[in-house]
């Protein structure tokens, strides 16, 4: 191997090294600029990463991450054999896939429709209004859901009764949970989700449309043959990111909407980790469950990215 390497004279090596050293010395203040962030990442990201080892140990607070005793895969075996294991998987995947199936296409459709309307007061009004819910806190969203869906005083049930039906106990009936979760998310995020597609659509060359119009293409045809192909790379990237996140959905909202009556549908891995780890203080067991979730997520992300790379040339890396 050594012969293949082009000969570098010792002088150049020293020259490069000197240049590098000079660059470091000259810019020493830039290292001060970045120092707080480096410390942040070490303390709040890398030390917890080191702490993952407690998933294979029996964590005792006084002994710390390193001092606690190794137990191997005990926590994982316990989790896999528990009666709630499949329920957790089913709920986690069920909510995510439902959310993806409904929540992924809607911003695309809305963006394509908005793109057809020329810039006007009307268009800007629709955008301003549909972006707004993005800024409402998850606690207020949960409060709205609970208030609107109340079987006795909620406005939704008032409408249902007006149409002559029986009121529905949305929040205490497990079979409604996923729908409530998904559609409240649609209400909150569809508008905001259009921004990235609208920005991709603004990159379409107007001449393409002009040529198509002269050739007699209808609006619908131009959407299908010009606009949609333009946003396919954006769609692919977002789909990969969504699929790679399928085990880690908006658990903060689920936690707020969860109650003992709907728990059979709302108990997902993330809320389970919170409950067993922080409320029941079974740190090691909860860390093991969290690690399992993270590993599945990473595996999914890598797989989906691989498939995307093979089939469409668009991928995250």
């Amino acid at each position: 191997m050594k012969e293949v390497v082009p000969p570098i004279s010792p002088a150049t090596v020293i020259g490069n090294k000197k240049k590098k050293n000079r660059k470091i010395i000259q810019n020493w203040q830039l290292y001060l600029f970045i120092l707080p962030t480096v410390l942040y990442f070490i303390i709040f990201k890398y030390i917890p990463m080191y702490g993952i080892q407690i998933a294979f140990k029996d964590y005792v607070p006084t002994l710390g991450f390193t001092g606690s005793e190794w137990v191997g895969f005990e926590h994982f075996t316990r989790f896999f054999n528990s009666y709630y294991f499949w329920d957790l998987i089913k709920n986690t995947l069920g909510i995510s896939i439902y959310e993806l199936a409904v929540g992924f296409p809607l911003p695309i459709i809305l963006a394509l429709l908005l793109n057809e309307v020329k810039d006007s007061v009307y268009k800007r009004t629709v955008q301003t209004v549909t972006y707004a819910p993005h800024f409402i806190s998850v606690v207020v969203i949960a409060g709205m859901i609970i208030a609107f869906l109340s079987p006795t005083t909620g406005i939704i049930n008032s409408f249902i009764q007006l149409l002559g039906f029986e009121p529905i106990s949305f929040m205490s009936d497990p079979k409604w949970f996923k729908t409530v979760y998904v559609f409240s998310g649609v209400w909150q995020s569809t508008g905001w989700g259009t921004i990235i597609y609208l920005s991709a659509l603004s990159g379409v060359d107007p001449q393409q449309h002009e040529a198509a119009i002269i050739d007699g293409a209808t609006r619908l045809q131009r959407i299908f043959y010009i606009n949609i192909p333009t946003i396919i790379p954006t769609m692919t990237i977002l789909l990969i990111m969504n699929l790679g996140n399928i085990m880690a959905m908006g658990f903060e909202k689920i936690l707020l909407l969860q109650n003992p009556l709907n728990k059979s549908a709302s108990n997902v891995i993330a809320t389970f980790v919170y409950e067993t780890g922080l409320l029941d203080t079974q740190y090691s067991f909860a860390a093991a469950v969290g690690l399992f979730n993270a590993v599945i997520n990473a595996a999914l992300l890598i797989t989906v990215n691989y498939i995307a790379k093979k089939t469409s040339e668009t991928s995250l890396w």
Partner: peptide, 21 residues
């Protein structure tokens, strides 16, 4: 530095270890 930061997007200590830290 960039690699050091970006890596944490893929590998994460998770809720429990972060809480303990």
């Amino acid at each position: 530095f960039t690699i050091m930061f970006v890596l944490t997007m893929f590998i994460d200590g998770g809720l429990i270890p972060t809480y303990l830290v």
